[in-house]
Write a protein that binds this DNA or RNA. Structure first.
Length: 585
RNA sequence: GCGCCUGUGGUGAAACGGAUAUCACAACGGUCUUCGGAACCGUUAUUGCGGGUUCGAUUCCUGCCGGGCGCACCA
């Protein structure tokens, strides 16, 4: 519709001999101002020094000659807005398209030429996932779905940072602190021949990643003693040398870490087309450093370290290779960026990573451009704000206020379960509870613009009233139950609208496609979240004072059709955010 | 010091340069002879401060003030 209006106005300008200008087409806040408002007269007035209302009058009289049947009325209002009112014909068409489109409804092809490789989640194996990781995963999931709905081919990627000193600390912690009898053994060979003497997550009755988390903390604490630290560093050296025993130990602890995290990730709804394992590419970065030195892009410092020259990008320089010749984070990221591009033939690479990495990523992008790996426009850092706990500030293990994803979900689920039992009476409420809890938590994160910090409010997230994920699910479930009732009553959806009045819910349904397109361009999942709340609210308000299923009422078949379209749009929109609508709740 | 992000009712948020700044929570009052009350209807209350650009600024520019993050051989 937006394009139609744009064309109409452009043609009108041409016919009137007015200059071509860029103008905005938007939905007025107040429906009394029509469905669309065009500010072209005001823009023109500025350029051509005309009176905006006179200008608008001319344009309107021109528009009125060519009005399609989907627009019922054009009006001038306020300082010179041209307001367009859509006809009920338009809404009949819109609802009909939704019903025809079903699950596929709402997609567009604006990014159909693009391949996006999106890296998100990438938790460190030595830690359990907390609220910060959760925001990353939830944001990444939604972003991938949204870009796909805009026609892009999306590769979902994760990086497994499975080597280095942190993993060595974990290995050490496991070695010295996980023996069942509590005896401290710092000898990997002994462990290898007596594995059954060591704890497993099962024997500790812990989720695998929590088991790992605990041992990592112990390993890290051990390193305060320099003797122990030496041994941990030696583990890194031995691992790099391919020591069989150390590799066995490494594989053992990593398996626990991955198993635990895979569970949490799948609970969040994360899935991946490809996982990059650090140990497979971390050494490849040095070649890029060599080639950068040859090309004169990098320079060697007197002490042997290699430094960038990013003055042309107005960025501070950074070291890409240590003086001892070993690599840094950025070193392997250069290699990985090239690998990603080659592997997927992607023309857009996205990093969903916290804002503290912002400078490092700008530097990476700039270096990749210098090295000819790709242009900076191809690389996007999707940062997101920090998550703290309301009333307690920043999460830190020292303050003991770290909220783990699993604990949060469990708490939400327990609460939902008791409500569900009361409401549906029978059956296994566990699946419903998981879906509802997931929606509550997800919505709490996604309703906020990505870059803003969130002080996570447990009470709010678990309140389920008004502006909440469960409210969205509830609306969809209720639409379904109304449709079931209509079916029993023998009322079939019909695309014949009897009256000319247009309800807000009909307007909202018709806007879904625009919202998806906007969320794609802005990479803004919260646009979808907020739209769904508006749609739900319009729907709830509508059925609150309108009888939908009524065999006596000639309006009923159309209303059933609208309800069906609401159900579809809600389901599709929720799917973009990674949420699933249960049958009942 | 420099750079990036951020500041909207009591609270949490929205507003792609537009009209009377929207929504939810909380508070208060109402709806229950219900297509499912996780609902609906109503009342109260908001753009950090100063300047600029503009017909029009929460939005853009600029200077303060407050919050967060980062700034070369850590990961």
């Amino acid at each position: 519709m937006k394009e139609t209006i744009e064309q109409l106005v452009k043609t009108a300008l041409k016919n009137l001999g007015l200059p071509e200008v860029s103008f905005a087409i938007e939905h007025p806040d107040d429906v009394a101002h029509g469905d669309y408002a065009v500010n072209v007269a005001m823009v023109l007035a500025k350029q051509a020094k005309l009176n905006p209302r006179e200008c608008a009058t001319k344009i309107v009289s021109e528009l009125e000659r060519t009005l399609p049947s989907t627009i019922s009325k054009v009006e001038i209002a306020g300082p010179g807005f041209i307001n367009l009112y859509l006809s009920s014909r338009y809404f009949v068409d819109a609802v009909s398209e939704v019903l025809k489109g079903g699950k596929g409804y709402g997609k567009n092809m604006q990014f159909s030429k693009d391949v996006w490789a999106i890296e998100y989640a990438s938790p460190n194996p030595n830690k359990s996932m907390h609220l910060g990781h959760m925001r990353n995963a939830i944001t990444g999931i939604a972003l991938c779905n949204i870009l796909e709905a805009n026609g892009a081919r999306v590769i979902r990627e994760m990086v497994d940072n499975n080597r280095g000193i942190a993993i060595a600390k974990l290995m050490w912690g496991y070695l010295v602190a996980a023996k069942k009898d509590g005896v401290r053994v710092g000898n990997a060979s002994y462990w290898q021949s007596h594995k059954s003497e060591w704890h497993t997550p099962e024997s500790r009755v812990l989720k695998a990643d929590r088991f790992v988390d605990e041992l990592y903390v112990k390993g890290a604490a051990e390193c305060e003693n320099s003797e122990n630290e030496k041994k941990v560093r030696q583990l890194v050296v031995d691992w790099e040398a391919g020591d069989k025993v150390v590799w066995d130990l490494w594989e053992t602890v990593l398996k626990y870490a991955h198993d635990g995290q895979a569970e949490t990730l799948s609970r969040l709804g994360a899935r991946f087309d490809y996982v990059w394992h650090e140990h497979e590419h971390y050494e490849k970065g040095k070649q890029y450093v060599e080639s950068g030195l040859e090309k004169g892009i990098f320079k060697k410092l007197p002490d042997g370290a290699v430094l960038t020259d990013l003055s042309q990008f107005k960025l501070t320089d950074t070291v890409v290779q240590k003086q001892d010749g070993t690599s840094l984070y950025i070193t392997q990221d250069i290699a990985l960026t090239d690998l990603k591009k080659i592997k997927h033939n992607a023309n857009h690479l996205v990093w969903v990573i916290g804002p503290e990495q912002s400078l490092a990523l700008q530097q990476l992008f700039a270096v990749c451009e210098q090295l000819g790996i790709g242009k900076r426009e191809e690389f996007t850092h999707i940062a997101y704000g920090y998550v703290s706990i309301k009333g307690q500030g920043k999460m830190s293990s020292r303050a003991g206020n770290v909220v783990y994803v699993d604990d949060l979900f469990d708490e939400a689920k327990t609460k939902v379960e008791s409500i569900v039992k009361e409401r549906i009476g029978e059956g296994d409420p566990s699946l419903i509870a998981e879906a509802v809890a997931h929606s509550a938590v997800t919505y709490e994160i996604l309703k906020v613009a990505r870059q803003k910090d969130i002080a996570f409010d447990m009470e709010m997230a678990l309140s389920f009233e008004g502006d909440s994920g469960p409210y969205l699910l509830y609306s969809a479930v209720r639409a379904k139950s109304i449709l079931d009732k209509a079916e029993k009553a023998g009322i079939k959806a019909s695309l014949e609208k009897v009256d000319a009045d247009i309800a807000m819910v009909e307007r909202m349904v018709a806007r879904y496609g625009e919202v998806v397109a906007r969320a794609g361009v802005e990479m803004a999942p919260h646009q979808i979240a907020l739209y769904l709340i508006e749609l739900s609210s319009a729907f709830n308000s509508w059925y609150g004072n309108t009888k939908i299923v009524d065999a006596e009422d000639v309006h009923s078949p159309w209303r059933v059709a609208v309800t069906a379209s609401v159900r579809i749009v809600l389901e599709n929109g929720l799917a973009l955010l990674g949420m699933k609508v249960p049958e009942r709740m």
